[in-house]
Structures are given as structure tokens and as C-alpha cells.
Design a protein around this nucleic acid. Structure first.
Lengths: 142, 142
DNA sequence: CAAGAAATTGAAAATGGTTTTCATAATCTA
DNA sequence: TAGATTATGAAAACCATTTTCAATTTCTTG
């Protein structure tokens, strides 16, 4: 289903309101590269929509996460990042600690092993975090 | 090698000083359950050593991490946690989102797959984070 | 062993990302 | 379209973390 619709439905279902700001934020969020921090998205939005406040961006990102359109991530640095939910729901990340490059990868065998481990410990897994930190080829070459 | 010695050596090598506070913090840190947050350790220490300040605990934990005796972790909640380094250096975590239970596990096959993925993307991995979040058997049963 | 240099400590203040407050504005219901 | 409710933006509050600074402790050197 279209992610805009998912969000709209969530808004209605919760008795919230559809505002210009929310739609602008959602579209900008969906249309660009992933892994936005609140500040990055705020700065980007400000160019075309100087009146949108930081708090609104922040609240909307939280709302996007709530509605299932975005996922909140916490990489090593201090700020949260938000990533649009896409078809390949389950992927993990390679993060370059030097330049900040983030590469997504999917490895079904890892998934399988995760489930196995969880079963061994009688855990019921809701979500997970799996990130590999290091140097990308470019930074390693320096 | 003994972890107290590793730390002492680090202190000397860096031209720092061996203080009572540092030794007390180190020993308490090593002698108890893992995964302390700064505040938890501070509160625990305060019972027997009421004069140790929060800042000192914080600085010492950072120092422990620097010296390789501790590893700084960031789980979902907002504060950092520190874990003593042990023999099974490479392990991952199962975290119960309900009661906070943390179980460590090791799965060599996952490690292998990680290396493989990194190689595919020409990444040089320094460290990683791998956590599975969900409900432990006890909480799932409720 | 004592004195001086240098590092450490603890309390309080600063920092910085995140979250909340509050008056005003916009949306939506009836 | 009015009235009720939610959203917005700016500023303030929050809170874990980090830094500052005067006083204290450690350690080196004479």
C-alpha cells in the first residue's frame, strides 16, 4: 500500500488532523535518501518551507514511526535517524565511521540464525538491530 | 591477563595516576553483574563510598572503555551501558523490552556471515552491534 | 622524605539532542 | 460557518553527558 495512504489512514484512525506541514514533511522524507536525522530533514525542508519549525519536524517524524511509515534508528552518534519503510523490510547496516556512509544489506542466513538463537532462549523477537561499523573502501584507502 | 593489571598498565602508559576512586570503581564494576549504566554504578558505589562523585564514575567508565577493560553499549533506552570485557569477546545480546533482561549469546556462524558481507562491500570492520529485542519467556507468558 | 609539578576529584554549571509548553493558528465536525 | 479540537512554532524544559574550576591527591625528583 502507498505509504502516504498508510500515514493518512493512521491520522484519521487516531483522530488527528491532516496538515500541510505533515504532508510536506512526509513527502520530503519519502522522496530522498534514507537515514535522515531530525536536523538534516529540518534543514532540508527549511529551504523551501522556511516556516516549518524544528519541533514540527520532530513530532512528525515520531508520528511517522508510530504509523509504521518510518523506522527510528540509533547509530553510534548521538542523534536518532529515521528511515522510510520499504519492501525489503529486514535489512541491516554497514556504517563507515569515517565518512558516515551507510550501506544496507540483507542476508537471509543471518535472519535464520537469529530466529534460531531466539528460539533457543525462548525469546519472542519483535525487532532487532544489526550494524557493522568500520571503514568503507574509500576511507580505508586513505 | 588480569583486567586490573590491564587497567593499571594503561594508566601508567598514559601518564595518568592511580587513585583510590579509580580502583574502587574498577573493582565494583568488575565484580558485579554486567551492563551497568553510569547512574546504576554510581548509586551502587555510593552506599559504601558516599564521597565518590557522579563525574568521577562517569570519567572512570570512559577510561575503562579506553583502556579496553570495558565496552560501551547503547541499547534502546537513553543511557549508555558499560560491560566488562571477558573471555568470550564477541557476543551479541537478546534484550527483553518488558523486564530489561539481557542475555548474551555467541553464534560463530553469524560472525562468519558478517565477515562475508563486509568483504562483499569492501568494508573493514572494527566492531559491530547486534541485538535482538523482544520478550523473554517469562514476560511472553504473562 | 619533602616539595613542587601535574593529574584528579567533586560540585556545579554547560552542552546538546530531544521533548514539552503555551499562545496562536489551522483543521475538522456538526 | 461556528465551535471544538488538534497542530504549529518559538522558546523553555529536560536529562544524560560532559566540562569547568578550585581544592585535593598523586607521583616524581632533588
Amino acid at each position: 500500500m502507498d505509504r502516504v495512504k498508510i500515514f493518512s489512514d493512521y491520522i484519521v484512525q487516531k483522530g488527528l488532523k491532516t496538515t500541510n506541514q505533515r504532508m510536506v514533511i512526509l513527502k520530503t522524507f519519502l522522496s530522498s535518501r534514507s537515514h535522515y536525522s531530525t536536523e538534516e530533514l529540518y534543514l532540508k525542508l527549511r529551504k523551501k518551507h522556511p516556516k516549518i519549525g524544528y519541533a514540527t519536524v520532530h513530532r512528525t517524524l515520531k508520528l511517522l514511526a508510530e504509523s509504521g511509515v518510518a523506522i527510528e534508528q540509533h547509530f553510534g552518534d548521538r542523534h536518532a535517524r529515521f528511515e522510510p519503510v520499504r519492501a525489503n523490510r529486514h535489512h541491516d547496516h554497514l556504517v563507515c565511521v569515517e565518512c558516515g556512509l551507510i550501506i544496507e544489506f540483507e542476508e537471509p542466513n543471518i535472519r535464520e540464525l537469529q530466529l534460531q538463537v531466539a528460539a533457543e532462549h525462548h525469546f519472542k523477537i519483535n525487532n532487532h538491530r544489526h550494524e557493522l561499523y568500520g571503514l568503507c573502501s574509500r576511507c580505508a584507502a586513505k
